[in-house]
Nucleic acid binder design. Structure first.
Lengths: 306, 306
DNA sequence: GCTTTCGTTGCATATGGTGCAATGGCGCTG
DNA sequence: CAGCGCCATTGCACCATATGCAACGAAAGC
């Protein structure tokens, strides 16, 4: 109780203690400063307010009305101060706070959501917000501090973006186990063009990477279906007819359960595309965001190893 | 706006202004201290809290979560501080406050209540409490600071009681104009004993004064009626049958309207009993209580003169 | 690459709080 | 009512801390 909050005016504390204990001398003992100082500080306080706070010429300290007002004020202020200290303490221990994420929809698979849920459980009180805009928007959000962390496909050239970890994440052709492509060890773009394709629209990073590869191979892909939904792409491929192109991370769960298979694409760039965790250069990710970043980094490395 | 409340930590103010203006330099201009100081003070704050408040390595000032917490805290504290200042200002101007009075019931006549009402009107916001306990209780209340001012019959021997003003207030026999005693210029206790008397109980100061007089005169008064209500005593006297004993002040209004007459009592002590305004020795009656005391004093002198 | 602007750090200075000692007041006791 | 003890106040020397000026480092705009 009555621990000195460094924020609060010492004079008020002196007055407060003296009022509570009914004597400057007792206050002096408790606080650890000379009585003279206490007396002077209280006088100074009265001069500042222009009102007498204690009744002079009296043995014990008696408050005037103004004194009671100031007393209650300090009491309130003390409570507020302790509240602030507690909240800051929680922040320091990462028991509260918030982390804003911007993650491409392709990465919002079971593995990532599992990781996020795990983080939630280990850090109760941290509010987590996840958005799934296009890559360009993700980069903008990270630059504008609207998101602490972004997860995008392939590194960006933005100078003010820092990539924390970038794991190889080649784009593969994805189809059902019964599909003609399923048995192949690799496939070219020209091969792909012969099948029914389901691809994201041109604005998507995947599609932009493909455009570059198409130019190189002089083979043009005409998707039978175009969708912004990664989920739909997966489902269509599972049905057996369609082939889609996705990074491994987007179909980790399906690969495990055997409902989808992936075939490497034979292309310089596509094989070396990578997944990046990014944040704004110079931004201090303290506490919760830092830990989440660490956790996601560990997860990514696990996926890489397996 | 944002005027410096001398109570609040300067460091917080620096941080607050810098955060609002988005720049230490602007804050420096507004506050009037060097940028270096502001920078150092904010750093010191961070060290105290153990948390970063602003994001470093950045041109403009951006708050961290902890920074926002501290920012809001100071904002609240500032508002509280201003509220306190305002209330103290009101107290200084006597627009608020309270005065506790302890007045013997005998003095709660129209004149006194008029004076109190007048005070109320001239000092709106001052809450006035009036109690009417026995004299002994009044003295106790003044000693214990439960009442600022007391009004009692005759001075007290209490050493810690200060009498501000003491006006002669002889006890008179009081009866209706048609009563046999009405024509007399003075009356003895022996005369009184022959009539129907209405007196207060033995605990009352009036009755105690009478007891002493009775002993002296060897004449014993047997009241036909005993009441603690001064009002009832007056009304009974007005009816014509009863005689009562009261100080002049208790029947000022009735004397003016002619519904009662007073006949001096021929007794050394009773003629020299007096009315006293008292307060505790050493107690500073600042502001409202002081003014009310002054006002009551002036009133008492008016009554004495007339 | 240069310049400008902003924040940080080093050092001398001044303002203000502090402790010790002496003084003044009030209350209690003999 | 005189003396004593406790408590608050005041004078003075000291010390801590915030401040200003100046130099430095870093980031943003041209």
């Amino acid at each position: 109780m009555s621990q000195q909050s460094v924020l609060l005016d010492a004079r008020l504390r002196y007055f407060y203690e003296a009022a509570n204990l009914g004597s400057m001398r007792l206050a002096s003992d408790r606080i650890g400063v000379a009585v003279s100082s206490i007396s002077r500080q209280i006088s100074q306080l009265e001069q500042v307010f222009g009102v007498a706070l204690i009744e002079r010429g009296r043995r014990s300290i008696r408050l005037t009305q103004a004194g009671r007002l100031v007393h209650d004020f300090y009491k309130q202020q003390l409570a507020d101060s302790e509240a602030l200290t507690n909240r800051l303490q929680e922040l320091r221990e990462m028991k509260s706070g918030r982390v804003d994420l911007a993650i491409g929809e392709g990465f919002l698979n079971r593995s990532v959501t599992e990781a996020l849920e795990q983080f939630q459980q280990r850090n109760p009180g941290i509010s987590l917000t996840i958005q799934s805009p296009p890559t360009a928007e993700i980069i903008r959000m990270v630059l504008e501090d609207e998101a602490h962390i972004g997860m995008i496909l392939s590194t960006t050239a933005e100078p003010k973006i820092r990539t924390r970890v970038s794991v190889a994440q080649p784009l593969n052709a994805v189809c059902s186990p019964g599909h003609p492509l399923a048995g192949k060890t690799s496939v070219t773009l020209a091969d792909l063009a012969k099948h029914d394709l389901c691809l994201p629209p041109l604005e998507f990073r995947i599609r932009q990477a493909l455009r570059a590869a198409e130019k190189r191979a002089q083979a043009w892909l005409n998707p039978a279906m175009t969708t912004t939904s990664i989920h739909m792409m997966r489902e269509l491929a599972k049905d057996g007819q369609m082939v889609t192109i996705l990074p491994t991370i987007s179909i980790v769960a399906e690969l495990e359960e055997g409902s989808l298979v992936s075939v490497p694409l034979r292309d310089e760039d596509l094989e070396h595309s990578s997944l990046s965790l990014i944040y704004r250069l110079g931004r201090q990710l303290d506490g919760a965001p830092a830990r989440l970043l660490q956790l996601l980094e560990a997860r990514l490395k696990t996926w890489t190893d397996s």
